[in-house]
Simulated scan of single mutants.
Amino acid sequence: MLIIDSQIHLWDGGHAPPHHRQKPYLAEEAVADMAAAGVDAAINHPPGWDADSNRYAIEAAERFPDRFATLGWLKLDRPEAPDLVRRWRSQPGMIGLRFLCVAPDERSWPTDGTMDWLWPLAEELELPIAVCGPTLVPHVGRWAEQYPNLKLAVDHLGLVGLTASGGLIQAEGLLSWSRFPNVSVKLTGAPDYASDEYPFRSMHDTLHALYDAYGPERLFWGTDITRLKCTWRECVTMFTEELPWLPEKDQALIMGESFSRWFNWTPPPPAQS
């Protein structure tokens, strides 16, 4: 079974927020951790807390092309941004884009016109985009309808907030957006929102509801491992051993095959030594 983690963060500088590990997470360490957990490849999301994280993402993909690909980011309000997007895939490992818009100067982007040029250009270039958090996710239905050939991936099971106890609050329209064939959902961070220990049964109904709505072709397993309190291997077996309602063929899709198809990326064979 091909196992692709649809979201990790690699960084070698900056200061991570308190809910992530505080020391940098380097490519070498991630490769070792993935091997121990039985994970074939991982999709790096260069974090905004390291302003140079795209540079490190490219370095990691160059050194470990069979292990890492990247959903990178850029400042959309810069005049050079459209040209950068047009050349995005020329950078090693870059297979798409990902945005949160949590910085003070970015929070108005979804509604003030700053992002308006991005969606049709990404649709034209067949460049998938992942979106995360309360600033962006509530607009997914509007963008999906307006740009039907633009592939959108919703991060963290549709997260838009947390309950007082740290539980998941999902976007109101999340399940109904499954009617748009260009919307998918990343099942990332599930253990972090659970109210119990492994195998995190408090999250199983949420996963089942998304499975019923989207099917296995538009759901992508992943971890966001640097903020989880469980092991990478537990994140794998939560899906491969603890969901009796998930057929084996659909398990294979969710664990990696569907991501590979959606983002048109398959890990190349390891280089021969």
Score class of each variant (00 low, 15 high):
Met1Gln: 14
Leu2Val: 15
Ile3Gly: 01
His9Val: 04
His9Ala: 07
Trp11Ser: 12
Asp12Phe: 00
Ala16Arg: 09
His20Lys: 02
Pro24His: 01
Val31Lys: 01
Val31Pro: 00
Asp33Met: 14
Met34Cys: 10
Asp40Lys: 04
His45Cys: 05
Gly48Asn: 04
Trp49Glu: 08
Asp50Trp: 03
Asp52Glu: 15
Ser53Val: 11
Ser53Thr: 11
Asn54Gly: 10
Arg55Thr: 12
Tyr56Gly: 09
Tyr56Asp: 14
Ala60Glu: 03
Glu62Tyr: 00
Glu62Cys: 10
Asp66Met: 02
Thr70Leu: 05
Leu71Met: 14
Arg78Asp: 11
Glu80Asp: 15
Pro82Val: 10
Asp83Gly: 12
Leu84Arg: 15
Val85Cys: 04
Val85His: 01
Arg86Met: 13
Arg89Asp: 05
Ser90Met: 06
Leu97Ser: 06
Cys101Pro: 04
Ala103Thr: 03
Ala103Asn: 09
Pro104Trp: 09
Pro104Met: 09
Pro104Lys: 10
Asp105Pro: 00
Thr114Phe: 05
Asp116Pro: 07
Asp116Val: 14
Trp117His: 11
Trp117Ile: 11
Trp117Tyr: 15
Pro120Met: 06
Pro120Leu: 03
Leu127Lys: 06
Pro128Ile: 09
Ile129Lys: 12
Val131Glu: 02
Val131Trp: 01
Gly133His: 08
Pro134His: 14
Val137Ile: 15
Arg142Leu: 15
Leu150Ser: 10
Ala153Lys: 04
Asp155Val: 00
Leu157Lys: 06
Leu159Thr: 10
Gly161Met: 02
Ala164Val: 08
Gly167Phe: 07
Ala171His: 12
Glu172Ile: 12
Trp177Asp: 10
Arg179Gly: 05
Asn182Ile: 13
Lys186His: 10
Leu187Arg: 01
Pro191Asp: 05
Tyr193Val: 00
Tyr193Asp: 00
Ser195Lys: 04
Phe200Thr: 06
Arg201Val: 13
Met203His: 07
Asp205Trp: 10
Leu210Val: 03
Tyr211Gln: 09
Tyr211His: 12
Tyr211Glu: 12
Tyr214Ser: 05
Pro216Ser: 14
Leu219Ser: 07
Trp221Ile: 13
Ile225His: 14
Arg233Leu: 14
Trp245Glu: 08
Pro247Glu: 06
Pro247Lys: 04
Gln251Val: 07
Gln251Ala: 11
Ala252Phe: 01
Phe259Tyr: 12
Ser260His: 06
Ser260Ile: 07
Thr266Ser: 15
Ala271Tyr: 08
Gln272Lys: 15
